[in-house]
Computed example of a mutant assay.
Amino acid sequence: MASVTAWRSTARQLPLRLTVGTFFLNAGLSKRGADQATAEGLHQFATTTYPFLGKLDAQQFARLLSTGEIAISAALLLPVVPVAVAGAALTAFSAGTLGLYLRTPGMRREGSLRPTEQGTPLAKDVWMLGIGISLVIEGVTKHR
């Protein structure tokens, strides 16, 4: 009976893990060979909200961002990675992008959480936070 329950849990997670995992893989691979202008744009945007990232040079930041996204995709796509671990990685990353959304001027409409046109690409990442939290909850509660 335990193997049937484990299979159901894995089957239930599969659409979430595949969808978000392939999204992250594409994002990470797209940044892998970022040119100087792209790296500088990514770095400048991130350091506006997270000043400690200014200690990195733009190319180093782009490589680390790319590597992080590829690592998260691997955690999501490889079934040997426990669901709670994959969910925690996704939750942490999406919390960071939502931090950019909440703290960067011009991303939200005045006095509102509603996004501006420029803020929509970051605001939509709230779905990743929801998926990450759901995976963590499933991973934590399925063993009880």
Rank of each mutant, 00 (worst) to 15 (best):
E69D: 09
A62R: 03
P82S: 14
V83Y: 00
P79C: 09
A75E: 04
I72M: 06
L65Q: 09
G68C: 11
V81E: 08
A58F: 01
A58D: 01
R63E: 02
V80W: 13
P79F: 08
S73E: 02
D57L: 04
A84F: 09
F61R: 07
S73P: 02
I70W: 01
A75K: 10
I70Q: 11
A84G: 06
I70A: 10
V81R: 09
A71I: 08
L65F: 13
L76I: 12
L56C: 06
L76W: 11
S66D: 08
T67L: 14
L78W: 15
L65T: 07
A84P: 00
P79R: 15
E69M: 07
V81H: 10
Q60F: 06
P79D: 14
E69I: 06
S66W: 07
P82G: 13
D57K: 09
A74Y: 06
E69P: 00
P79N: 12
V83Q: 13
T67K: 06
V83K: 04
T67Y: 14
A75V: 08
V81F: 13
A86Q: 08
I72S: 00
L65V: 09
F61D: 07
Q59I: 05
L77T: 12
A58Q: 01
L78R: 08
S66C: 06
L76G: 09
A86C: 06
L65S: 14
L78I: 14
E69H: 03
L56N: 03
P82D: 12
V83I: 15
P79T: 14
V81D: 05
V83H: 05
D57Q: 08
L56Y: 07
T67I: 11
E69Q: 12
E69K: 03
G68F: 05
I70G: 00
V80D: 02
A86N: 08
I72K: 00
L56K: 04
L64T: 01
I72R: 01
Q59N: 10
T67R: 08
D57A: 07
A62P: 02
V81N: 08
A74I: 15
V80N: 08
V80M: 12
G68N: 13
V81Q: 09
P82R: 14
Q59K: 15
V83G: 07
L76H: 10
A62M: 06
L65Y: 07
L78K: 02
I70R: 10
T67F: 12
L77Q: 14
F61E: 07
L77W: 13
Q59L: 13
D57T: 03
E69Y: 00
L78M: 14
V85A: 15
G87L: 07
L78Y: 13
L76E: 11
A58H: 03
D57N: 15
V83R: 11
Q60V: 10
L78V: 15
E69T: 06
A84V: 10
G68D: 04
R63W: 01
L64D: 01
V80K: 12
R63M: 01
G68S: 13
A84H: 13
G68P: 00
E69C: 05
Q59C: 00
